[in-house]
Design a protein around this nucleic acid. Structure first.
Lengths: 262, 262
DNA sequence: TGGCTCCGTTCAACAATGCGGAACCCACAC
DNA sequence: GTGTGGGTTCCGCATTGTTGAACGGAGCCA
């Protein structure tokens, strides 16, 4: 629809880590539109603060994006509540903690607290998307989606193997998700990155809906030593966040009943 | 120009801290446009990720804003270079450090490292604008703008007094900025917030241009005790960042010569 | 249960809007 | 001086977005 607005989206795509600045004619040629059109577009995007003009007449992402992202983060309730709990986890284990959510069929990292250990894990950044089928948070988020939606998602992305341990068989994944749902936590044993293991659990809002997942990411050699402890910790942490979001177990059981009967 | 894009800007304005979600008809009435128009607009903004739809058919800021803000921050060179230096300052003094820049005549906070002391300062967040005439970073940024631009800015905002110490007389401000430029640092002695003092210094890029300002924000009672030390520290820190940005003193003196002759 | 209102969404016709080619200006290079 | 490549301006035409009315669903009250 609104093709002008769609163009705005295309323009924003052009500003990546590798291309922080672009010129009018660059944008024009990349988008396959005349210079004049690109010019008008860029200029108006400057007006509304999505872009800004540098001294040498090139364009960069604008500061308003910063302002928007702060209000976005400040008003995302589960992130606000999760923050201190994530801090506690880092303090206790020194391991990296991730917070992710499902956004239009993709797993999106919403927050991250770097661990303090010397041997570090550094795979993701905030605002980045990752494949769902091979990460612990991804499995959690998939597990609590209706299966048809999961199927739709899979048909788009497939099940690309990132390591020898990645689940590549849909039926196998389905069984895994079933299990995840039952026991309330998910594992990733070197399925996304070799040498890296994760445990994740679901965060529910006041309606019992799973709105996010939180995980501990730990180098394999440390993970196996304290697997149970880590699992208990992440489950407890997510329960704590859910509680702060107004979730009470009652609604959960109620939901399960509905799901069973429906 | 491009009125549709401008509308996008107006829509974004509606999503503040106090209104994280909005409905179609809300947006329509607030913008004074028909529902159908608002609907098309919101929907397309969802498509491009600036907004997202909640389960109950309302709209929120979209996650793409997060992704954009991470690339924005990662590609803002002076912020990248300033980060570790800011960390050093916090480690050394335990006081809050701010990084700010000038954006279309406004002082905008780009980064902030919270101090570790018990008695804390908490005024600003990232992506927030503050009046320029009464903060230390503001004075720095104003001081290195051509005076006509400063005047234009002042005629828009005026010199509202935030405390009894705020400078409210344009001539007095002009003299102050002159002084700031000479000595290379700026002070804010309870001019923006009572009980709060700041010292700031300029950060220059490889061309000698002042691109940002960094400050220490300290409760008054602690500030006066170690004023000189704090001043030396922030000046040295900014010099360090400028150096990392490729700034060499030579270009600075050259610039001064130009300014003197021009 | 039926009728009420409120809200999001769809549709099609009309008119304004943004599109894009060409022309202009400027800086820099050869 | 001339040529190239950048950003910017202009204006007529047709595409695009606007609009109001009509639809369908959810929730409320009698």
């Amino acid at each position: 629809m609104l093709s002008t607005v769609r163009r705005v989206g295309q323009v924003l795509e052009l500003f990546g880590m590798d291309h922080p600045e672009r010129s009018v004619s660059e944008v024009a040629s990349l988008l396959g539109i005349p210079k004049s059109t690109a010019h008008a577009l860029l200029r108006t995007m400057c007006d509304i603060g999505l872009l800004r003009r540098t001294a040498d007449r090139r364009y960069r992402l604008g500061w308003r994006i910063l302002a928007l992202s702060t209000t976005l983060l400040a008003t995302t309730q589960y992130r606000v509540e999760a923050r201190p709990v994530m801090g506690d986890l880092v303090a206790r284990f020194g391991e990296t903690v991730h917070l992710a959510t499902m956004e239009s069929g993709r797993v999106l990292y919403v927050d991250k607290l770097q661990g303090t250990r010397a041997v570090q894990v550094s795979v993701t950044g905030i605002g980045v998307e990752l494949p769902a089928h091979c990460s612990a948070v991804g499995k959690i988020l998939l597990a609590f989606q209706p299966w048809p939606e999961v199927e739709a998602l899979l048909s788009r992305t497939g099940l690309p193997p990132l390591t020898p341990n990645t689940i590549t068989d849909p039926e196998r994944l389905r069984a895994e998700l079933e299990e995840v749902r039952e026991r309330g936590y998910a594992l990733d044993i070197e399925e996304a990155v070799l040498e890296l293991c994760c445990v994740a659990a679901p965060i529910r809002d006041h309606r019992g809906e799973v709105v996010a997942a939180m995980s501990l990411s730990v180098p394999a050699y440390r993970f196996h030593r304290q697997k149970d402890e880590l699992r208990r910790a992440i489950v407890a942490a997510c329960r704590e966040v859910s509680y702060r979001l107004g979730y009470t177990a009652y609604e959960d059981t109620q939901r399960r009943r509905q799901a069973a009967s429906g």
